[in-house]
Design a binder for these strands. Structure first.
Lengths: 142, 142
DNA sequence: TCTTCAAACGCGACACTGTCGCGTTAGTAA
DNA sequence: TTACTAACGCGACAGTGTCGCGTTTGAAGA
């Protein structure tokens, strides 16, 4: 994450009357650095790397808060477990290795434009966004 | 679901030494009839329509069993809740209404062929399948 | 029809997850 | 330094999913 991006986020929080607490700063830093969706469990481990210890309820509340401010977004993959990732980024998709469970971000070639238009028109449906994940084997597991 | 399809499933179960219990038959019937992913909660309500009452653990075990036999598959949408749907069907995707939460199945136009090829090749990743969901507003909610 | 066997089941226990209310702490501005 | 309130810790709680174990029952054979 670029420093200016970080500064923007912090500025908006301050303007909104929100405190820059150690947990909040640490989470924004972690999400900015990790370019992949994180399980709550993984988040906990990364927090252990800092000196920050918080109650379960506090962490959940903070994630709900960060999501409400569009700083992070929730992602849902095939296993049904909720994951969180940094939100202020280009539209992208995920590659999930079915063997080692590693998740990478991936961008599509230009051809993606119009993906939403592929839907058969008989469905009287106004599409606003989509979610696309690819599953398979990563380089190490092939 | 076609009757022959149903007969095939039951035959394979018998050959595998598995019993055709009331719960199992009811679930296969329900999944065959409902052409959309079902929450555990919705499944419970549909079972109430039959005279079948089972313990929570039994239902979970049965779902795991049916999934292991590829009779049903789990689906995961944006809300992180696990859903189940009949598996023996053509490859398709979902339309999720963000307002009324209704979920429809949808097929793409021919252009879909090659979706897996859109992934930028620098990712040393062997793609086996993908999952694609569209979100927006259905006809009634627009 | 009766017997037999293992698949399937019910039940209770358990750990885990996510949320809530409430009293306390601490970041920020004055 | 003070005051305000966002954020926090804690305990309680309901919901979810799994496990072990003793019991029941579907299905095949006597």
């Amino acid at each position: 994450m670029a420093d200016t991006e970080m500064a923007e986020i912090l500025y908006e929080l301050e303007v909104g009357g929100h405190k820059l607490t150690p947990l909040r700063l640490a989470l924004i830093e972690i999400f900015g650095r990790q370019q992949r969706p994180l399980l709550l469990e993984e988040l906990g481990k990364l927090l252990m790397g800092t000196l920050i210890r918080v109650h379960r309820a506090t962490l959940y509340r903070e994630l709900v808060f960060l999501e409400s401010r569009k700083i992070i977004a929730t992602v849902s993959l095939e296993d049904g477990k909720r994951r969180y990732e940094f939100a202020d980024r280009d539209h992208h998709h995920h590659l999930v290795c079915t063997s080692c469970k590693k998740i990478e971000d991936v961008e599509l070639k230009d051809d993606e434009h119009g993906l939403d238009k592929l839907v058969k028109t008989q469905n009287d449906f106004l599409i606003t966004h989509h979610s696309l994940e690819f599953f398979g084997l990563c380089g190490a597991c092939k």
